[in-house]
Design a protein around this nucleic acid. Structure first.
Lengths: 201, 201
DNA sequence: GTCTATAGAGAGATAGAC
DNA sequence: GTCTATCTCTCTATAGAC
């Protein structure tokens, strides 16, 4: 007896996601340019040709991952601003949330973003995703007003807010990389990171 | 009249370095895997074939850059430990020195190191350079005792020293990436970075 | 020392069978 | 929906002329 449309749809969705997950691992391990379709197919445990049945190209998979990463960072920044408490509490929530994700597979998403932003060897639509005031910098831009509020509340040191935001996200980004470089390296406590916002003794 | 041996040697040295500099730019912009010999030759303004006259392969150039980056980081950590003053002064010197280099082309060296350490698509001898307690982690290892001394001197917060060292270098690494992503982004002051070592108010 | 021309391999992408 | 076979193109690396 033949499969129903619903069953077919479910199979398609599953395969597609299975390939995406395999692609993430391969992209993270080898980099977008060095990633071979064959690697991805092997990682997913299916044939070379099937990957092309679900995706037009390697670039399409990469673009989709960049999109997911951008959306994820946007969400975290958005939710952070909605958390109860003072500005510094919201930053604490954001830091804990991101740190938690870095401990898991979230670290790979940072690598994807870094590759996407630092490499010219990237498809056109990825550049469009990242370029020009786009969502890619949403998290950074959304954090600046939180920092400003913290400065008014007197809990955050009065330094240039953009500079502090850049420092904060650079820090986070660097931690994600360290995590990939050395999966057993001891990540700092959220408080250590947040110290960049405080006056020292 | 023919060139002397000395003149020939000088030409060779110049060409070799010229190609290395071109390779650095291309590696940084496109990533080691996506970098084509043709790109490097074009960047250096000479022929495809000449690159192969001076280097066995793309991998050889990449390996040499990783070696230079490793040696550079080793030097900074070494000199830091020889600076006068308390531990925190030595860390300040190190931070200023690295930040200065990041403002220039030093940022590319961080990208090279990150690629080398996070990607499987890397030649065997690079892996050997980085693997196994090698010089690659010299800076990190050399910084731990400095931090410990600072803790004894009472100027550095009493947290796990390895954890602090990882945080510190992750921070620096993240800043280098941000710099490449956005060359006009405002880098933090050294004091902001060093705040991770202090007790807060 | 430097260039052009080219051989040869490897991988992205497609066609068609099952 | 999935696989195998293959076409095609790009890029590495070499050979040989100047």
């Amino acid at each position: 007896m033949p499969r129903t449309d619903e069953q077919n749809r479910q199979i398609r969705d599953e395969r597609r996601e299975q390939i995406m997950q395999a692609a993430l691992k391969v992209f993270a391990r080898r980099g977008m340019a060095a990633a071979k379709i064959g690697d991805i197919a092997a990682e997913a445990g299916l044939s070379n040709g099937l990957v092309y049945h679900y995706f037009k190209s390697k670039e399409e998979m990469f673009s989709e991952w960049v999109g997911r990463a951008v959306e994820g960072s946007r969400r975290v920044a958005l939710y952070a601003g909605e958390q109860p408490g003072k500005a510094i509490d919201q930053l604490k929530w954001m830091t804990e949330t991101i740190l938690q994700s870095i401990r898991g597979e979230g670290a790979y998403l940072f690598l994807i973003m870094i590759q996407a932003m630092t490499s010219d060897a990237v498809p056109e639509d990825v550049k469009r995703l990242l370029d020009s005031e786009s969502k890619a910098s949403y998290a950074l831009l959304a954090t600046v007003p939180i920092i400003r509020r913290g400065q008014e509340e007197g809990t955050i040191i009065r330094e240039n807010a953009e500079q502090l935001a850049v420092a904060y996200f650079s820090f986070i980004q660097g931690l994600a990389i360290s995590r990939v470089q050395q999966p057993d390296c001891p990540l700092p406590k959220p408080e250590t990171i947040l110290r960049i916002f405080h006056k020292i003794l």
